[in-house]
Design a protein around this nucleic acid. Structure first.
Length: 868
RNA sequence: GGGUCGGUGGCGGAAUGGCAGACGCAGCGGACUUAAAAUCCGCCGGGUUGAUUACCCGUGUGGGUUCGAAUCCCACCCGACCUACCA
């Protein structure tokens, strides 16, 4: 055993020892409060990068902190294993995706072990294991039975590079590119499976209030769900065909002067007059092509074309021209709008361009910037703001707004009374498209039979296994199409010839329920399933669920976090769970950047390999450094030289605990009562600070407090004497030992290895001196049944009384400027403090005989004398 | 265009109404060493000053509230992220 801190000698040793002791094995202990700490599962890319360390090691520190605070903590790990990279690697290297994936899993397990985290390896789950995905299929089947999974022939977003469809959530940015490869997506008409997430739109929105999640995530989900409050109104064409519209401003119905349909609207063909047919067809053609190239195009210039047809405004029977324009889109609302150019900017621009009538129905308030507006001709742009209703029949005089007695409510009441429409909610959220035309995913358990139609695979026949020998040509069709043994099957109903669904599921399906799988991975392995099954052991589930603390990146704010919430709500309706939110608390860490301050990427050449640093400095240093950079939710650049500071700190801690003090100081006077009191105060102040900071994920300031405490211990080490000489200094000895033990306990969540090593060493020294039990020379725990691991110790408790300062420095200000400082006993009487401040020579100098107007005294902090 | 978060020494950051710059990095000076590394000690926002326990300036910009503002309010500038013809 070395007397110096050599991380290579201790980290692997303790990792092996903890595993041997079963320190991180999962036990459902009903007598203890449980804590389910979850960090987002890694994809099996084959390499754990710095971002993983940045996400996972603080999560581990928080979990360990909970454990030391008396919780039975579950901190599981697994692998998100299906998906495109495996398939692409397979195509490029002619290796089966499964082989590639499991090789990566093997490598990543090793890398994860080196973190020294308290992973519950006994509950590991890999999503591409048939015993895992059989439950993904079971969930699909359940959703199908509940009518929450359906197949639809409709235009979908298609990535021509990945050769697959994408969910709306996977299409990013104004240019609508693929989330994974940045290729602009195109539209295709395809038969695809979807989940009815929109059934839960309202619940997904309202329940956000019940969970402790970061505000930005809540805002993003709120915007994504996009609830609009308004009314459905039915217009009619002159041929008596209904045109349904949705509007958030039913109060402006009397200001509608024309209608606009999306080019794809089903009524376009019928309403178009013969003389307009050519122009309309050309525009529809142009719009659809635009759609396929780049739908957004910079020009905000509105375009459109008149159909020749007219519709009747139900509120005033006015005849209004019907146009088509691509600024109206089929996928929101009903694909048709009433145009109110006076009060909607888009309609205004369109009306001005095509010389359509504009009507003012809201009189802007006279004190607003539009106060001069008297008629539509005065408008330079639409007025969407407040005012009073005019030119609007029964609504005239109503104040504009959505409240009681205000215009929108009045309009809805009028519509409902006259049976022309009704109040309605509309959502931006679309159903979740889960079909993927790729091979490396969970097969969708559906069979198409010529006679029986769409037949779900019976529960007892699950899993539908991926064939081991499938080809994966990138053709744009599902590769499983080409596997005859997979594709052609007998119908489970009639035993006639049938074909399997050959699309696979979006991988977000696998990660939507993995937190449940961890509780009891591969439940019922090897046994047939039924509709009445529970997907995990219910006793275990009842104990651990739901997740208490989730940690992960903001990039999943919408996709994964919305899907898993939807899944949980569906599971609740299935009767599988009895709660409605999967994760009670969420923390989003920031992004660790390259040394150049840019996102790490191979092309930039700024990728930091954590393994190199773990080799050089050890896992404890890398963990501590990542937590010390700054607030965890800020992220920030990796500074290769700053990591030295944390490493030096660990060496200094080692030295404080292990090294003998300078023998020259043997003759130094023993510590005074004041020395003891100061050390005790510093100790309890540090406990308070570190406890509060780790509890709030403020690891950076927790580490700063630990450094400060250690610096203090270095300064007083010689005063408190050598280990051997402590015996001669009985008053000092207990507080010094308590300080060392407490420092190690406070360091444990963040620096698990060195804390354990020094904990054992400090214990050995104490025992040797007490001539008590001899401990195992390799530092392994005793075999007498008492567990000595530092990780099983209780978190130190601070005594606020002992943390209090006896003496404080009070700042004396004159007119807000510091002019003197007074060292006084804490809790000094206000009057006394004021008198002392006024008597100060420095203060007298600045008062210069002027009148004292006011004296502000903040106890134990400051006196401000206002003169003038 | 809309939304969210942010702007503090050479750098990462601390302080969220009460001494701005904790803790660390880098830098400078010194001790130890044949030398270097490591380690240890000291200095480290700017200015006035020989030096100060002395004074002034200083938290993106301008204004406000307050005895007192990095912190609260208003306006603006800059940056990051999200979102985008949503009727």
């Amino acid at each position: 055993m070395s007397d110096r801190y050599i991380h290579k000698e201790i980290e692997a040793k303790w990792q092996a020892s903890w595993e041997k002791q079963g320190l991180h094995d999962t036990v459902e202990a009903p007598d203890k409060p449980k804590w389910y700490a979850l960090t987002m599962l890694p994809y099996t890319s084959g390499d754990l990068h710095t971002g993983h360390w940045y996400a996972m090691t603080p999560s581990d520190a928080a979990a360990r902190f909970r454990r030391m605070n008396g919780y039975n903590v579950f901190f599981p790990i697994g692998f998100d294993a299906f998906g495109l990279p495996a398939e692409n690697a397979a195509i490029n290297n002619n290796i089966h995706p499964q082989e590639w994936t499991y090789k990566n899993v093997e490598r990543m397990r090793g890398q994860l072990r080196r973190m020294g985290a308290m992973w519950a390896w006994d509950r590991e789950a890999i999503t591409c294991d048939p015993e895992y995905y059989k439950w993904s299929q079971w969930f699909f089947r359940k959703l199908y039975d509940m009518g929450l999974a359906y197949r639809e022939y409709a235009p979908v977003d298609w990535c021509p590079n990945c050769n697959t469809t994408l969910a709306r959530e996977q299409v990013w940015g104004a240019d609508r590119h693929c989330e994974r490869c940045d290729t602009p997506v195109i539209k295709k008409d395809l038969n695809q499976w979807k989940f009815r997430i929109t059934n839960y739109a309202n619940e997904l929105l309202d329940n956000l209030e019940t969970i402790d999640w970061p505000e930005p995530v809540k805002v993003m989900q709120t915007n994504w769900i996009g609830r609009s409050d308004g009314a459905d109104v039915t217009f009619t064409t002159e041929a008596d065909d209904p045109i349904e519209i949705f509007t958030t401003r039913p109060d402006t119905l009397w200001g509608a002067t024309f209608m606009v349909l999306a080019p794809e609207h089903p009524l376009v063909a019928k309403i178009t007059t013969d003389e307009r047919r050519g122009a309309v067809a050309a525009y529809v053609e142009q719009a659809s092509r635009l759609d396929e190239i780049t739908r957004t195009a910079e020009d905000k210039e509105k375009t459109g074309v008149f159909t020749g047809g007219y519709a009747i405004n139900p509120v005033n029977e006015e005849r209004m021209p019907v146009w088509i324009a691509d600024y109206v889109i089929m996928t929101y609302g009903t694909g048709a709008i009433m145009a109110v150019p006076g009060h909607d900017q888009r309609d205004f621009e369109f009306a001005r361009k095509y010389e359509l009538p504009i009507r003012l129905v809201v009189q802007p308030p006279s004190d607003s910037e539009a106060g001069h507006i008297r008629c539509a001709d005065d408008l330079e742009s639409a007025w969407p703001g407040p005012g009073v209703m005019i030119n609007s029949g029964p609504l005239n005089g109503a104040p504009v707004g959505k409240g009681e007695g205000e215009s929108v409510k009045a309009a809805i009441a009028w519509l409902e009374e006259n049976q022309k429409g009704a109040g309605a909610l509309n959502y931006r959220l679309r159903d979740w498209l889960i079909s993927r035309q790729r091979m490396w995913g969970t097969p969708i358990p559906i069979i198409f039979c010529a006679k029986c139609g769409t037949v779900p695979v019976p529960y007892a026949d699950l899993p539908v296994r991926l064939p081991d020998d499938a080809q994966f040509k990138p053709t744009g069709e599902s590769p499983l199409n080409y596997h005859e043994g997979f594709r052609y099957v007998k119908c489970p109903n009639c035993n006639g010839d049938a074909e399997r669904e050959t699309d696979t599921m979006d991988t977000f399906m696998c990660s939507s329920w993995y937190q449940y799988a961890y509780v009891d991975p591969y439940h019922k392995a090897g046994r047939p399933l039924s509709a009445d099954d529970m997907p995990w052991d219910s006793a275990r589930g009842d104990y651990w669920l739901p997740v208490d603390q989730y940690t992960g990146g903001i990039e999943h704010a919408i996709m994964h976090l919305l899907y898993t919430r939807f899944f949980t709500k569906a599971l609740q309706d299935m009767g599988v769970v009895d709660f409605d939110e999967p994760m009670l608390r969420l923390f989003n860490q920031g992004i660790i950047l390259g040394p150049d301050g840019e996102r790490m990427s191979k092309s930039r050449g700024n990728v930091v390999n954590p393994d190199e640093y773990v080799d050089r400095y050890g896992a404890d240093t890398v963990r501590g450094y990542l937590m010390f950079i700054g607030p965890w939710d800020h992220g920030g650049p990796w500074d290769p030289s700053a990591i030295e500071g944390v490493n030096r700190f660990l060496h200094r801690v080692w030295s404080v605990v292990v090294d003998e003090p300078n023998p020259k100081n043997e003759e130094a006077p023993p510590p005074t009562d004041d020395d003891v009191r100061s050390l005790e105060r510093k100790l309890h102040q540090t406990i308070l600070k570190v406890t509060e900071d780790i509890g709030g994920f403020r690891f950076n300031t927790a580490i700063a407090a630990l450094m400060e405490f250690n610096n203090y211990l270095i300064r007083v080490k010689n005063t408190f004497g050598a280990l051997e000489s402590r015996a001669s200094r009985p008053t000092a000895q207990p507080i010094w030992q308590e300080s060392i033990r407490t420092l190690l306990l406070l360091m444990t969540p963040i620096f698990p290895h060195i804390s354990e090593e020094l904990w054992q060493r400090a214990r050995n020294v104490i025992e040797r001196r007490n001539d008590a039990r001899r401990s195992d020379p390799d530092g392994c725990p005793d075999t007498d049944g008492e567990t000595w691991s530092v990780h099983l110790q209780s978190w130190p408790q601070a005594d606020p009384e002992k943390a209090k300062e006896d003496e404080v420095t009070v700042v004396v200000q004159v007119n807000g400027r510091v002019r003197d400082k007074l060292n006084v006993a804490s809790n000094i009487a206000t009057e006394k403090l004021e008198a002392m401040a006024l008597a100060s020579a420095n203060v007298q100098k600045w008062m210069n005989g002027k009148q004292v107007r006011k004296v502000i005294v903040v106890p134990d902090k400051l006196v401000n004398i206002v003169i003038g």
